[in-house]
């Protein structure tokens, strides 16, 4: 039994050391961003602040606030639209399969894995032509379209768990395609919508490549503004740390409050249902 306990101690020790290492970035962010300006120095990175000072946050907030709102206006419609379309596609691809529907699914799914660099030049030309370049609306459209593969996949796998007999029963009662969708599928999809919405929210909020190429200055989302903040020579790194935390706050809160669904989305995104 003694050896057993030694093993248990070792296991805890490894986990604790790894956990501490994983949390060091959080520690540095918090400590640095809460320091009074005169204590911020590279040599004292790990030292605790002598007093709590929020001036880094007010500075970072004044820099990031407009872009933060851009991200909000981007992420809400893009998440809702891509989830709704995903639900519609998933419904058809799981419950109304037809000849070739599996192929269509695979064709759609491939879009999930492409490097977006490979569609970026035409996308920007296209957005310029329809005058949505450098606009939040253009980014919404982009995220809805390129979000379709993952949301379709998630809903398809989710609906695969709804027994076909329920649909058969409804059909016998005279429900049609849309009736079944509205009265059976949608009410059963609440969990699915939560999982997909959280996943899309997190991805779109955190996305950078589309954001930095499709928008400039006024309509840039928060991640681009954060990158600019960190690339700037005149902004001190305590402000960068505060900015990083502010920009990460929405997705972190979602993770803390709804982590269970976040993990389900993460697992659902790995193709196998």
């Amino acid at each position: 039994m003694a050896t057993f306990n030694v093993w248990k101690t070792i296991k805890y020790l490894i986990l604790i050391v790894m956990a501490v290492l994983f949390l060091t970035p959080v520690y540095v962010i918090l400590v640095t961003s809460l320091k009074p300006l005169d204590e911020v120095s590279l040599a004292n990175m790990w030292a605790l602040p002598s007093a709590i000072d929020f001036s880094s946050y007010s500075h970072a907030f004044s820099e990031l606030a407009p872009n933060f709102m851009n991200s909000v206006y981007l992420v809400i419609p893009a998440t809702l639209l891509s989830a709704l379309l995903g639900a519609m596609n998933g419904y058809v691809l799981s419950k109304w399969k037809f000849k070739g529907s599996e192929l269509i699914f695979t064709v759609i799914l491939f879009g999930m894995f492409i490097p977006y660099q490979s569609i970026l030049i035409p996308l920007i030309q296209f957005l310029r032509n329809i005058e949505l370049y450098n606009s939040i609306a253009g980014l919404v459209l982009t995220h809805v379209v390129y979000g379709l593969p993952i949301t379709t996949l998630m809903f398809r796998n989710f609906y695969a768990n709804i027994p076909d007999t329920m649909l058969e029963a409804a059909k016998i009662d005279g429900a049609n395609f849309l009736g079944i969708f509205r009265h059976i599928i949608i009410p059963l999809s609440i969990t699915g919508f939560v999982v997909v919405a959280i996943w899309q929210f997190t991805n779109i909020w955190n996305e950078f490549l589309f954001a930095v190429t499709i928008t400039n200055s006024d309509s840039q989302p928060v991640m681009v503004a954060l990158q600019n903040l960190s690339g700037s020579q005149i902004v001190q790194w305590n402000v960068q740390m505060a900015g990083a935390l502010l920009a990460a706050l929405p997705t972190l809160l979602v993770y803390i409050l709804l982590g269970k669904y976040f993990v389900r989305g993460l697992l659902a995104g790995s193709v196998k249902g």
Partner: peptide, 16 residues
């Protein structure tokens, strides 16, 4: 603790 960085942006990770 091991999962929370998944919720962050690569930009945030890079900056820190």
């Amino acid at each position: 603790i091991f999962l929370f960085p998944m919720a962050l942006s690569f930009v945030v990770t890079g900056v820190v």
